[in-house]
């Protein structure tokens, strides 16, 4: 039996320990905000936080996150998440939306470590999140806007 925290709730999983965390989040816990894009850590659609750090859940065996704290797009909160949320809506970032929960999770993780990121920091953090609608310019703009908002509300 593998137990971990998913958005502040305890999840117990007694299936194959090699099952990717993404499968457990979507199929066992029924949280479908986290997406399957490639399954080979190449697109970022499945990004979640494990103890606050980004993780590609499609290549993370559930056994490796036993007793850890997992956060998905449904549960992410705090001032960075709030700022990103507002800026995303203001900037009208998503097009089809498929990649966006992964983009948001990477952006929030970036702001936690770099509250005022440069373009270079944004490129670094977001390099593994592919958007087939090419919303990259708006993502960059919204991250800057969120950073600004955070600074102003200090």
């Amino acid at each position: 039996m593998i137990a971990f925290t998913l958005n502040n709730q305890t999840i117990q999983f007694d299936g194959d320990p090699k099952t990717p965390l993404l499968w457990v989040i979507r199929d066992r816990a029924g949280l479908t905000g986290t997406k399957y894009g490639c399954g080979i850590s190449q697109c970022g659609a499945c990004t979640v936080h494990v103890n606050g750090m980004t993780k590609r859940s499609c290549v993370t065996p559930v056994s490796t996150i036993a007793d850890q704290r997992v956060t998905t797009i449904e549960g992410v909160d705090g001032k960075e998440a709030n700022a990103i949320h507002t800026a995303w809506i203001e900037t009208d970032v998503p097009q089809c939306g498929y990649c966006q929960s992964g983009q948001v999770m990477s952006a929030v993780a970036l702001l936690k470590q770099k509250p005022n990121p440069t373009d270079e920091d944004i490129d670094g953090a977001m390099a593994g999140n592919i958007c087939r609608c090419a919303t990259y310019q708006r993502i960059r703009q919204a991250i800057h806007t969120a950073a600004q908002q955070m600074e102003e509300s200090e």
């Binding site: 090699k18 499968w23 399954g39 080979i40 980004t54 993780a109 470590q113 920091d121 390099a127």
Partner: peptide, 27 residues
């Protein structure tokens, strides 16, 4: 880099992919 650390994808062990891909078998 912040938000895209090595362990964003690389685990503490080799991981054989559950997904199908032509040229890559494991991370």
């Amino acid at each position: 880099t912040p938000g895209m650390e090595c362990n964003t994808c690389h685990q503490s062990e080799n991981v054989t992919l559950a997904a199908q891909a032509k040229d890559i078998k494991s991370v």
